[in-house]
Simulated scan of single mutants.
Amino acid sequence: MPSVHPSAIVDPAANLADDVTVGPFCTVGAEVTLEAGVTLLSHVVVDGRTRVGSGTRIYPFATVGLPPQDLKFKGEKTDLVIGANNVVREHVTMNPGTEGGGGLTRIGDGGLFMVGCHVAHDCHIGDGVILANNVLLAGHIHIDDHAILGGGSAVHQFVRIGKHAMVGGVSGVETDVIPFGSVMGNRARLHGLNLIGLKRRGFSREEIQALRSAYRMLFEEDGVIADRAEEVAASFDGVAPVMEVLAFIRGKSDRGLCGPAHPGTELA
């Protein structure tokens, strides 16, 4: 049977795996599913149509699954799905989706959500993502695998952040961040590649050099980036990380592309 502290309130309809631990003063709603090995340490609220993946640990005063902070939300049935082996620290809030945004907020596996982070409605977060203390995500944001957001950064709704990107602390991000990019500032501008992250993730010297060359072609030469992208595609055909950047640039965007701080390249 699950281990439930006597002071916790768990709705009888909730679905708890046998080895779930629910600590003191936690509250678990009727439509919640807690998979194998989930731990709620204490004073945690999990409500709504929320599924928490196996091995995830949620720390005191975190609140997940309560209604979105969206005036258009009228109580429709929407979902929050949190993947496996995440660490959700104190005072984190995560909201389910809205009908207008697809009805789903999804968190991948193996993420770290530090103290005071907010993940708003209809966000889609990949695997291995790290949100440092007090990161704020507005609605409809897509963050791809292994991106890192520094403490106190805030991201505008509908922004996309690519794989292995790095957002500097206390940055305001209002445009899309390319995979492997490093951005900072208010408002955030592109300051090169996340070279430290690339090395930590085991990218080869050749791949990193190709990315650096492609970056210079895309962002450090005059002209329209769409034209530069064609040149990069021809020059680096078959280099997977470069193709990842180009696919991201060519993808659908509601916010435009985060470019370098210096004038020159047109991001049209």
Rank of each mutant, 00 (worst) to 15 (best):
M1Y: 07
M1K: 12
S3Q: 15
S7A: 11
A8E: 05
V10H: 02
P12E: 11
A17K: 08
A17Q: 10
D18L: 15
D19F: 10
D19Q: 13
V20K: 09
T21N: 11
G23Y: 09
P24T: 12
V32G: 07
T33C: 13
L34H: 03
T39R: 15
T39G: 10
T39I: 15
V45G: 03
D47P: 02
T50P: 01
T50I: 11
R51P: 01
G53P: 02
P60W: 10
L66W: 01
P68Y: 04
L71Q: 12
K74W: 02
G75Y: 06
L80R: 04
V87F: 08
V87G: 01
E90F: 08
H91F: 14
T93A: 08
T93M: 07
G103H: 10
G103S: 08
T105H: 04
L112S: 01
F113W: 08
M114Y: 02
A120S: 14
G126S: 08
V129W: 04
V135T: 00
L136E: 03
I141Y: 01
H142G: 01
I143M: 12
H146F: 14
H146L: 14
A147T: 02
G150R: 06
R160Y: 06
G162W: 05
K163F: 08
H164S: 13
A165M: 09
M166G: 00
V167P: 03
V170F: 08
E174C: 14
S182L: 15
V183G: 06
N186C: 09
A188L: 06
K199F: 08
S204D: 11
S213P: 00
A214F: 06
F219G: 03
F219C: 05
E221R: 15
G223P: 05
R228S: 14
A229Y: 07
G238V: 03
V245H: 02
L246S: 01
A247M: 05
I249P: 00
S253T: 15
P260M: 13
H262A: 14
H262Y: 11
P263Y: 12
T265M: 13
